[in-house]
Amino acid sequence: MNYFITSGKLLMLAIWGFLIGNLFFPFPGQAALLFYIFLGLISVMHIMQLLLIYGAFAEKLKLTKADALQVFFFGVFKIWELKGRLTS
């Protein structure tokens, strides 16, 4: 399971790099617009995940700023890591 989480985090890091790189070096034609839309969607989804964690587990799980940033960038892969802190 730990290998899966690490692989997922590396994949998300590559996706974020690709999408943010498109802001500075846009792809030609309609591809840039598509990647702007993907960047917006992934940002909204990860903000929703972060708000869901704050709303559902605020009294049981205290997130540091570093944890919150990792949830934003890595999404469900960081949430799986935090699950261990929630059950103990």
Score class of each variant (00 low, 15 high):
residue 1 M to R: 03
residue 1 M to N: 01
residue 1 M to L: 06
residue 4 F to I: 00
residue 4 F to W: 05
residue 4 F to Y: 09
residue 6 T to S: 01
residue 7 S to F: 09
residue 9 K to Q: 10
residue 9 K to D: 02
residue 9 K to M: 09
residue 10 L to S: 04
residue 11 L to S: 08
residue 12 M to T: 03
residue 12 M to L: 13
residue 15 I to C: 09
residue 15 I to K: 05
residue 16 W to K: 03
residue 16 W to V: 06
residue 17 G to S: 12
residue 18 F to S: 14
residue 18 F to M: 13
residue 18 F to C: 12
residue 19 L to Q: 10
residue 19 L to N: 07
residue 21 G to S: 13
residue 22 N to E: 15
residue 22 N to T: 14
residue 22 N to C: 14
residue 23 L to E: 13
residue 24 F to A: 15
residue 24 F to T: 15
residue 25 F to N: 15
residue 29 G to A: 11
residue 29 G to C: 10
residue 29 G to D: 12
residue 30 Q to V: 14
residue 30 Q to P: 15
residue 30 Q to Y: 14
residue 30 Q to M: 13
residue 31 A to K: 12
residue 33 L to E: 13
residue 34 L to H: 13
residue 34 L to Q: 15
residue 35 F to T: 15
residue 37 I to K: 09
residue 37 I to P: 05
residue 37 I to Q: 13
residue 39 L to M: 11
residue 40 G to L: 15
residue 40 G to A: 15
residue 40 G to T: 12
residue 40 G to F: 12
residue 42 I to Y: 10
residue 42 I to P: 07
residue 42 I to D: 02
residue 43 S to V: 07
residue 44 V to E: 08
residue 45 M to E: 07
residue 46 H to W: 09
residue 49 Q to I: 09
residue 50 L to M: 11
residue 50 L to Y: 12
residue 52 L to S: 04
residue 52 L to N: 08
residue 52 L to E: 12
residue 53 I to G: 07
residue 53 I to H: 10
residue 54 Y to N: 10
residue 54 Y to T: 02
residue 55 G to F: 09
residue 56 A to S: 08
residue 56 A to T: 08
residue 56 A to Q: 10
residue 57 F to K: 07
residue 58 A to V: 02
residue 58 A to S: 09
residue 59 E to Y: 03
residue 60 K to S: 05
residue 61 L to N: 05
residue 63 L to G: 01
residue 64 T to G: 01
residue 64 T to K: 02
residue 65 K to C: 08
residue 66 A to I: 01
residue 67 D to K: 00
residue 69 L to R: 08
residue 69 L to Y: 10
residue 70 Q to V: 01
residue 71 V to A: 06
residue 71 V to G: 03
residue 71 V to E: 00
residue 72 F to R: 07
residue 73 F to K: 00
residue 74 F to E: 01
residue 75 G to P: 07
residue 76 V to D: 02
residue 76 V to H: 06
residue 76 V to T: 14
residue 77 F to S: 03
residue 78 K to W: 00
residue 79 I to V: 09
residue 80 W to Q: 04
residue 80 W to A: 05
residue 80 W to M: 03
residue 81 E to L: 03
residue 81 E to C: 02
residue 82 L to K: 06
residue 82 L to A: 06
residue 83 K to D: 06
residue 84 G to Q: 14
residue 84 G to S: 11
residue 85 R to S: 11
residue 86 L to S: 07
residue 86 L to A: 02
residue 88 S to A: 02
residue 88 S to D: 10
